[in-house]
Design a protein around this nucleic acid. Structure first.
Length: 558
RNA sequence: UCUCGGGUCGUCUAAUGGCAGGACAGCGGCCUUUGGAGCCGUUAGUGGAGGUUCGAAUCCUCCCCUGAGAACCA
């Protein structure tokens, strides 16, 4: 399922598991990934997926996929499908253990009846506002509901009638009877069931009452035999309630909830709500816009599952809030693609070069390796002719200091071809450079054993053979490191206006014309690129996954 | 204000009373037919003040900073 990495993750959760194994508390480790199907998965979910499935894999345990679908108003089958696709794509397998919390609605109902019989739950007929008023504040205890001491029989009758659809939404709720004076607001007789006459994506119109997360989650975990229920920090305050339900129902072999810090990445937002707003308000083209931190966005951008898994291992798991540098993610994908991506030549901003002393009709096939990191990837031939295109940025009429590329009177090597010298700069009436006239040194053919060397090597394509393509350059979506972290500023104000640059006049080597959607390449000296699914017979579209490290650019900014 | 969490290089993360280490980023160098990759080197940290101890990032006290908590959301 997963290729070996040199990283052995260790974290406080694995230590707890090691201990549980050692003491014999558990012999089989069982985790679960429990998304609510109300949005697309993002890189933060990927961290949780890698954690849960990774633990199952390393401990020879099991990890379930469970849809936490207790709120029919927000959930949709569209998300159920995309979530499965994304988890699979990341390289994980739940075998036959895909569940829905809604699969357990009958059992959950029976447990609720039992809680009523045990005096642990009651039907409250207060309005939402009254409930809110009775709850108190973090510093003041709440008040007791006038319905708190209804008889078991009356509670049973009302709860049955709620289920039967006799009441409108909001008329009654079922509440756990705990402690209205608890300093933990979640323990102040929390709602267990509410009436919602809504169609559920999985159970249709079978139910008009739906359980709350705090109630459904621990019981779902228990029913699946989950040993370690991993969730993010915001649920820490819910843990006493998680334990209370299991205790109140006298369930044995209880799962243990353990919280860890969610992933935050610099220069992006991670909340489903904000991501949805970016999509709905047209700041991006969709959930899979390559600038989005969604799994589908990263996939379209050209990220590999391995790179995301390695990233998840590298960020680690702890309890302190963190904002991880997106450079770490970029490093992970460079690291992976460096080993896998074939090198090809592509000129993004072409500048014509005529080799004045090269035979007019000659086409030479130049041999070049596909990946210097991996000999097994072999080599290929690329056509070389009198007229070629090079990158505009690889020429400077008045060269800056330490500029090792082409300039008047200077030499540069064309990768896998010859050394050329710039003899003449041709300009149009407005003074724009339209063409370079150069001469080549026939003694310096690549692979011929020529020993002459020059400082710079640049990429090129043959004018006659090059294929046109569109290339999309992506930059960070926000100009601020933590766009969601400002109270006085809306994250929308911090959107980077230059996060997408479309180049529609790029020239690629002919070999690339065969590329199919999703194919990944290193454009030599430019970065890693992949074929966008939008590509068709008419036009090839490439997305830049990430640029190469560029020490020249860095030198200039310093 | 109250309750519960959390504070280790710029960032992320180790240490479990015994040499504060790794990764990313940065910087310097080597190498290079990718100014890529690789290799070598290097900068940089225990929030503060006390205390316990032969010895404290780790234990205790106080303080500071920070996150979460008052949906019929998850």
């Amino acid at each position: 399922m997963e290729e070996k990495t040199n990283i052995t993750p260790t974290n406080f959760i694995r230590e707890i598991i090691d201990d549980d194994l050692k003491t014999g508390k558990h012999t089989l480790i069982h985790t679960r990934f429990p998304p609510e199907p109300n949005g697309y998965l993002h890189i933060g979910h990927a961290k949780s997926i890698c954690l849960n499935f990774g633990i199952a894999r390393d401990y020879n345990g099991l990890c379930n996929l469970r849809f936490d679908d207790t709120n029919p108003e927000k959930e949709d089958i569209e998300y159920v499908d995309s979530i499965q696709e994304d988890v699979k794509w990341l390289g994980f397998d739940w075998a036959d253990r895909m569940y829905y919390a809604s699969d357990y609605f009958h059992k959950l109902y029976d447990f609720a009846v039992q809680m009523i019989k045990d005096g642990n739950a009651y039907v409250d007929s207060s309005t939402a506002q009254e409930l809110k008023d009775m709850r108190g504040t973090p510093t003041e205890p709440g008040g007791l509901s006038p319905y708190r001491n209804r008889s078991v029989d009356e509670n049973l009758r009302l709860f049955t009638e709620m289920k039967e659809g006799k009441y409108d939404d909001g008329a009654h709720v079922l509440r756990a009877k705990i402690d209205m004076a608890s300093p933990n607001m979640h323990m102040r007789d929390p709602v267990v069931y509410r009436i919602k006459k809504a169609t559920h994506h999985n159970t249709g119109d079978e139910w008009c009452i739906y359980p709350m997360y705090d109630y459904a989650h621990p019981i779902s975990d228990w029913m699946e035999g989950i040993t370690h229920s991993l969730c993010t920090l915001e649920f820490e305050i819910h843990r006493p309630l998680y334990d209370w339900f299991l205790e109140a129902l006298n369930l044995k072999n209880r799962p243990r909830q353990i919280e860890f810090a969610r992933l935050n990445l610099t220069y992006t937002v991670m909340s489903k709500r904000k991501l949805l707003e970016l999509v709905q308000e047209g700041f991006v083209s969709g959930w899979d816009d390559p600038r989005m931190p969604t799994i589908c966005g990263l996939r379209r951008r050209g990220y590999t599952p391995e790179s995301i898994r390695n990233f998840a291992d590298k960020v680690g798991v702890a309890k302190r809030d963190a904002l991880t540098d997106v450079a770490l993610l970029e490093h992970a994908v460079r690291d992976d693609l460096n080993k896998k991506a074939p090198r090809v030549m592509a000129v993004l901003k072409p500048l014509k070069v005529v080799l004045t002393n090269y035979p007019d009709d000659l086409t030479e096939e130049m041999e070049t390796v596909n990946n210097p990191e991996d000999e097994s990837m072999g080599s290929r031939k690329i056509p070389f002719t009198k007229e070629i295109f090079i990158e505009q940025d690889d020429f400077q009429e008045v060269p800056e200091k330490k500029f090792h590329r082409l300039s008047p009177g200077k030499e540069v090597r064309l990768k896998s071809a010859y050394i050329i010298k710039c003899d003449e700069v041709v300009k149009d009436a407005d003074g724009n450079i339209t063409e370079l006239r150069c001469s080549y040194d026939p003694e310096t053919k690549s692979g011929s054993g020529s020993t002459r060397s020059v400082k710079g090597t640049i990429h090129w394509v043959s004018a006659k053979h090059a294929v046109k393509a569109e290339v999309r350059l992506y930059d960070r979506l926000f100009t601020d490191e933590d766009p969601a972290g400002h109270e006085e500023k809306d994250f929308r104000e911090l959107i980077n206006p230059d996060s997408l640059e479309i180049l529609d006049n790029c020239l690629i080597e002919p070999e690339l014309a065969k590329a199919k959607a999703g194919d990944k390449f290193q454009f030599v000296r430019m970065g890693y690129f992949c074929v966008d699914p939008l590509s068709n017979d008419k036009i090839l579209v490439f997305n830049r996954t990430v640029g190469l490290k560029d020490s020249w650019a860095k030198m200039k900014t310093n």
